[in-house]
């Protein structure tokens, strides 16, 4: 991987990686730092990677960095925050915003799988490689994530 190829990867994957990391850490500045760190590691350690491996490698790195950051900063979703979110969702019953904010209901793994699947279009096998879990586990976690969102939507519909 030379400098020109690296530049191409930066332009191709910065946006999607930033979106993925931002959903994980919920802080724009932190997300930008983590994306930068991911690309730094790509340059330092990704010399032997094939072009088709670059994207999943970047997301794997971004996922690990995000998890480490969450663990470090202890940014857990509090009950108070969840109640605020639900009130806000009812006040603004836009399907798009509800679905986006329903990510808060999911575990980190479920959220990551959902984003990798819906935003980036990764296959189960690729998601399994990125998150270092089995393909079957990806499928089960994805089912549970969507089920939670569906139930949340159903509950909001009854409230409205």
């Amino acid at each position: 991987m030379n400098a020109s190829e690296y530049n191409q990867y930066v332009k191709a994957y910065t946006s999607c990686l930033y979106r993925f990391v931002l959903k994980m850490v919920r802080d724009k500045d932190e997300a930008k730092d983590l994306v930068q760190e991911s690309f730094v590691r790509l340059w330092e350690k990704g010399k032997g990677l094939q072009p088709e491996q670059i994207k999943s490698w970047l997301f794997t790195t971004g996922y690990r960095l995000s998890l480490a950051h969450i663990e470090k900063s202890k940014k857990f979703v509090s009950e108070e925050f969840l109640s605020d979110f639900q009130t806000q969702a009812i006040d603004n019953p836009d399907l798009k915003s509800i679905i986006q904010e329903s990510l808060l209901l999911l575990s980190e793994a479920q959220k990551s799988i959902l984003m990798l699947r819906d935003y980036e279009g990764f296959q189960y096998k690729e998601i399994a490689d990125i998150l270092e879990i089995s393909e079957e586990s990806v499928k089960v976690q994805l089912f549970r994530a969507r089920q939670k969102i569906k139930n949340h939507l159903k509950d909001l519909k009854f409230v409205l």
């Binding site: 798009k96 679905i99 986006q100 969507r146 089920q147 569906k150 939507l153 159903k154």
Partner: peptide
């Protein structure tokens, strides 16, 4: 439920 399941996909909002 079938329709709700169709709406569980994340929408690209960024």
């Amino acid at each position: 439920d079938f329709v709700l399941w169709a709406n569980t996909k994340l929408i690209d909002d960024v």
